[in-house]
């Protein structure tokens, strides 16, 4: 019994981070309709920012979080205004290739500047654990989970109650009608891309004390987030949250129950992704069929 509870806790703690990453992707795709393959690099840059903060100034990565969120947001805002803006009406292939190009550029700038060495940024919470009977809850994971949950809830509250958040939902539903409301949709796009990037960077800084950091850490996370978004259904924020936990729990279960499972666990998200795209493109991933190639 204890072991199942432990798996549940592990899965949920992992799922929180997946939700955070996927929410960022979901927001930018849901509003701007451009899949951002470079989202993983926002995570990677956030992780390096935390790492350098620790290394150079000795500050805790958690203390750096607000600065990283702001920095990520500005970076995303600029990226949208300078580049993504120009390909909004371009064919899908151009959009995909553009963000793919960004991904390559950011990865390799990181590789050149900071080498490919694996690094990690210990936090004060890295080495403490709470034991509840047979259960172990590492504080690092608990803190990361909590921050992730707070950020996701904050984003949802912004969408739900703020003037800009309401305008964002309007743009996502019907951008022409949003124009008629006097909404500057390009500003909304840039803000959303900024928020998406800042969520990614925040996820990265949380991961800096959980996993090893490398210039290539981001891309697999993006593919996993696609699975999360697909699981929950595109455009459904609640679905994304559920999807994050489903993936976290499934990966945890696979790595426990299957021999040599941690390797196989890496494949769980891809299997989910294909299975959903293939079997439930209309149901769960409603937009896959509706949306035509532009």
């Amino acid at each position: 019994m204890g072991i199942y509870l432990q798996l549940l806790i592990d899965g949920i703690l992992l799922g929180g981070l997946y939700t955070l990453v996927a929410t960022g992707i979901s927001l930018s795709y849901g509003v701007i309709r451009v899949i951002n393959f470079a989202h993983g690099e926002f995570i990677m840059l956030g992780a390096y920012a935390a790492f350098w903060a620790v290394t150079l100034s000795g500050l805790d990565p958690l203390l750096m979080l607000p600065a990283i969120i702001v920095g990520g947001g500005l970076f995303g805002y600029a990226l949208q205004r300078l580049f993504i803006q120009r390909i909004l009406n371009a064919p899908h292939v151009n959009q995909i290739l553009l963000t793919f190009g960004f991904s390559l550029i950011l990865q390799n700038i990181a590789a050149i500047l900071w080498t490919g060495d694996l690094r990690s940024a210990p936090s004060v919470v890295s080495y403490s654990v709470t034991e509840l009977g047979p259960l172990m809850v590492p504080h690092s994971r608990l803190v990361a989970f909590t921050v992730a949950v707070v950020l996701v809830i904050g984003m949802l509250a912004w969408l739900k109650w703020s003037e800009l958040g309401r305008a964002t939902r309007a743009v996502a539903q019907n951008h022409r009608a949003a124009l008629l409301m006097g909404i500057n949709i390009h500003l909304i796009y840039a803000i959303c891309f900024g928020i998406s990037a800042s969520l990614g960077a925040a996820a990265g800084s949380l991961m800096s004390f959980l996993v090893t950091i490398s210039p290539w850490m981001g891309f697999p996370l993006v593919v996993k987030s696609f699975a999360v978004v697909a699981l929950g259904g595109l455009g459904s924020v609640l679905g994304t949250i559920v999807g994050g936990f489903v993936l976290g729990l499934s990966e945890t279960a696979v790595s426990f129950f299957i021999p040599g499972g941690s390797g196989w666990a890496e494949g769980v998200s891809f299997v989910f992704l294909i299975a959903i795209l293939v079997f439930r493109p209309r149901g769960i991933f409603g937009l896959a069929v509706e949306e035509d190639a532009r």
Binding site: R166, A170, Q173, R176, A177, L180
Partner: peptide, 11 residues
């Protein structure tokens, strides 16, 4: 007021 109303259905 555009043709076809164009209200935001999920708001």
């Amino acid at each position: 007021v555009p043709e076809g109303r164009q209200v935001f259905p999920n708001l």
